[in-house]
Amino acid sequence: MRRTAGFIASIVLLFLLARIGDAAVAAFALPVPGAGVGLAAYLVLLATGLGEGSIPAARGLAGLLGALIVPPLVGVATFAPVLAAGGWRLAAALVAGVVVTGVVTAATVRFTAR
């Protein structure tokens, strides 16, 4: 019972931080999405030692990210005609771009470490 209440309170906290992020973005015309500001605020909160009780719930919610991405991925079908018109050239651009970006990032981590 208490664990359930704690879990709900933690999710409410994460919702509030996201909303505060949205409000800050609107108020100061920040160039980042509200969720990014909310994440920064959450890190500050955790660094002060407050809100550590929310970590298990946060990890649980972050573990569901995959499920949350499913609807936007299904929604890609809305653009099926545009994407199909791009054909193999669009597919080649997506694959080559991801490979270049991933390899450059990984190589930079590796060769600038130490």
Partner: peptide, 19 residues
């Protein structure tokens, strides 16, 4: 409802970064 959970889930990534 899943769309509404996306922003709090991004905030929740902070827990792993903090750990």
């Amino acid at each position: 409802p899943l769309h509404l959970l996306l922003a709090p889930a991004i905030v929740a990534l902070g827990a792993g970064v903090h750990a």
